[in-house]
Design a protein around this nucleic acid. Structure first.
Lengths: 305, 305
DNA sequence: TTCAAACATGACTATATGATCAGTGATACA
DNA sequence: TGTATCACTGATCATATAGTCATGTTTGAA
């Protein structure tokens, strides 16, 4: 199909465009005022098109070159074609895209939600849909395109996966001062024997953090029975703020707690849990949806604050 | 105009064509059966178009890749555009062109006319218009495009002008045997003193050959007064054939004369007149009218017999 | 689980095309 | 008859695109 058009050289969008600019302006010099380079370029490209079509697309009028009748027809053809392509381009660019960001619930709550506006700025005001994932399924979800961006632990990623570092998560035991025996210093909260006596809250979803926490408690010799099992870290924080429970929160979720009289102590068992969070994405998906590397870099920057 | 289309890379006629072939075939593999190279090329070009438009032009169906809705629309767009271009191409190619061949009258009569069919073959059966020119204006006529081909003396051309050698013209004194005194050998016709007695025919147009002939006669001490001044060499040959006149004919015009009892002798005064005839043409004009070097070469060949 | 088909991708090479510069003609106009 | 404008051309460089090869990944089916 269309073999004739492609079997010889001399046809290119750029040449067609140059010819159109010549035809619209009315002469080569008018098409590129005060630019002799461009003039010679246009002259050459016109001549190449004439060779390609084997037709006289131009004629001399005095010292100027003007489009011939055939040239005018060609110009109209080109104008329509480029307009169609541009329309298609605009139409596609305008199509509202929905980007999906996947992460653990608390990460979405505390890391993503506060900067969701800035992220949408980078994505051309696209709709953003947040999805809670277990970390081990996130990598898969990115790979098959169900999720555009994911925030995951770096060590959950395969070797050569694209990622940008975000923050290093730490974990903190948080509890209202009054949950400790009167007179004891805040540092008493570091003692696993004390933990046994505290009314803990914890997740009930079997997520990685939850499992790890229970594991850590077990290893510390604590018979861990949270008094409230909740669905999200936001709920946990509320329970902690109200003084009802003690709990272990990630660093992203402790902002402002101390000001409210909550004791915040680094939670030793998870010290080396090592949650180097990174932003992960599907390269091909990004290209197809028109997101370039700079935008991704900006998003990572925003997520780091 | 259309800046958006050209400010980024990734758009080219070739890619559009590849995408069309993919869309028509229904998958990459079907578009290039048993050609893994082409397949990878198409895959890449599709991906480049998707990047360019920032849109998903394809979607997976099982292990195949098929055009998406947007992809189908793009394919239709491309099909129409290429069809339009091809139509234009055909239309221009079919346009009957009129090529003009310029030369001196006798050259046209004796060199060009006998092979005009073969010349038209090389020019795609184009209309050919023959124009008589004085040799010194021919070069000018080629330069400004009024004439496509010219047959001229090589030494009339500027230094670097394109040309192909045709034939070397010689000149011959031709006359009916009975115009010589009975009993004299044919070689008597070589004697300038005899010329004075002959009833000559010659041109009256003041053309270069005519002028040169009269000059040569003067230098040979002959008081040259042709009895018939005619408009063309064809007329002169007729006069010679009928026995009415003697005359000087170029080599291209003496074929068959001797068989009719005409004495043909080399005409010494013009021996070194040096008419190395060449085919000359306007390079740019040839490109614009779709005549390639091979065709020109063939035409020269035909003119050499 | 294994295999082959379909597609994707990295790393090249080759080629066409675009860009730039310098210089030459041609033409109109003062 | 200069002179400025406009167009053309040869030469060369820079770059985008096409083409090739090897290999990886996903998917459906045996």
């Amino acid at each position: 199909m269309f073999e004739k058009l492609f079997e010889s050289n001399g046809l290119s969008l750029d040449r067609l465009r140059s010819f159109l600019s010549f035809a619209v302006a009315g002469s080569i010099a008018k098409a590129a005022p005060r630019d002799v380079n461009r003039q010679s370029q246009i002259s050459r490209q016109i001549s190449e098109l004439e060779t390609f079509f084997g037709a006289e697309l131009t004629e001399r009028r005095g010292k100027e070159l003007v489009p011939s009748a055939a040239g005018d027809r060609l110009a109209e053809l080109i104008r329509q074609q480029l307009r169609d392509l541009e329309d298609f381009q605009h139409e596609q660019a305008k199509t509202k895209k929905a980007f999906t960001i996947g992460a653990g619930a608390s990460i979405l709550d505390w890391l993503v939600l506060p900067v969701i506006g800035a992220i949408r700025d980078e994505l051309g005001q696209a709709t953003v849909s947040l999805e809670t994932f277990r970390s081990h399924t996130l990598v898969e979800a990115v790979k098959n395109g169900r999720v555009d961006f994911a925030i995951v632990r770096k060590n959950a990623l395969p070797e050569n996966a694209k990622s940008k570092p975000l923050i290093d998560l730490t974990f903190h035991l948080c509890l209202s001062r009054h949950l400790l025996k009167r007179g004891t210093p805040a540092s008493a909260a570091d003692d696993p024997k004390v933990w046994q006596t505290l009314p803990f809250t914890a997740g009930k979803d079997g997520g990685q953090l939850d499992v790890t926490l229970r594991q850590a408690m077990l290893e510390a010799g604590v018979d861990f029975h949270p008094v409230v099992e909740c669905n999200s870290m936001l709920q946990a924080r509320q329970l902690i703020e109200s003084g009802e429970c003690a709990g272990v929160l990630p660093s992203v979720g402790i902002h402002g707690l101390e000001a409210k009289g909550i004791v915040v102590r680094e939670f030793a068992p998870l010290k080396n849990y090592g949650r180097h969070l990174v932003l992960h994405w599907n390269e091909r998906q990004m290209r197809r949806r028109g997101v370039d590397g700079a935008a991704i870099k900006q998003i990572a920057l925003v997520l780091r604050r």
